[in-house]
């Protein structure tokens, strides 16, 4: 990573966070959507407490949909408000993408911990292995941010960007859901701790691959020479 690339990434992250703090659109959407999903699930299981396995699946689904609905926004909004061209003029495509993906990581980690906390408090399930659970939320959030950022960046220029972002992101996130459920289930005390650790490594690997390869691929897509 050269200094100019790092400087551009920092500048983009700063711009994204400043814009987000002023509009609060992404955080509100992610929070509201996730919170409503959690409430609906808690309401649905009102009569009987969900088992840790079901609870892990419910939380994972809430986080996945929250990510798919909100995270592509950082990419798509540039296209919608017409500022994508300014971004192309000013920044290296890979730096612009990576800055935005990092912002998504911050946003998703924040949303995951808030939603995870609210969910656990509401369904009153004990967290048997807190470290695995917290690391599960963290790696799941990073993997979701990596996958959805990539898909959001791909659909820039499409007529039906939002729907298309969901269509291309959801199948790509299935391995994340699969691993996320195992990790969270292990955190809630179901199954072996080793299964949880393996899925944590796999989730971290998925996040790492998408965050590392994403800028290279998106640079090729966004570049116009």
């Amino acid at each position: 990573m050269n200094s100019s690339w790092g400087r551009q990434v920092r500048a983009i992250v700063g711009k994204e966070l400043r814009t987000e703090l002023r509009s609060k659109h992404g955080l509100f959407t992610a929070g509201l959507f996730g919170f409503l999903t959690v409430i609906a699930m808690v309401f649905a299981s009102y009569a009987e407490k969900p088992s840790p396995s079901v609870a892990a699946g419910m939380l994972c689904v809430a986080l996945v949909f929250s990510a798919v609905v909100t995270l592509p926004r950082t990419m798509i909004v540039e296209d919608e408000q017409g500022t994508f061209e300014v971004l192309q003029l000013l920044a290296e495509p890979s730096a612009a993408y990576f800055g935005k993906a990092l912002t998504n990581c911050v946003q998703m980690v924040f949303a995951s911990f808030v939603l995870g906390g609210v969910f656990i408090a509401m369904v009153e399930i004990p967290v048997a292995r807190p470290v695995v659970f917290v690391l599960g939320l963290l790696t799941l959030a990073l993997a979701l941010a990596g996958g959805t950022s990539f898909c959001g960046a791909l659909v820039i220029g499409a007529t039906n960007r939002w729907m298309l972002a969901g269509v291309v992101a959801l199948p790509l996130l299935v391995p994340v859901v699969f691993l996320g459920v195992i990790a969270l289930r292990s955190g809630l005390g179901v199954g072996f701790e080793s299964a949880g650790s393996e899925s944590l490594v796999a989730l971290a690997g998925y996040a790492l691959v998408t965050l590392a390869a994403g800028p290279q691929l998106i640079a090729l897509v966004w570049r116009n020479d």
Partner: peptide, 26 residues
Amino acid sequence: YSALDLALWPQLTALEHMDLAAALRG
């Protein structure tokens, strides 16, 4: 490059636009 239909970030001030561009361009 400057064009009539080139959009700017509505939430950022003029000074922030210049500072952001300066940071990106080095």
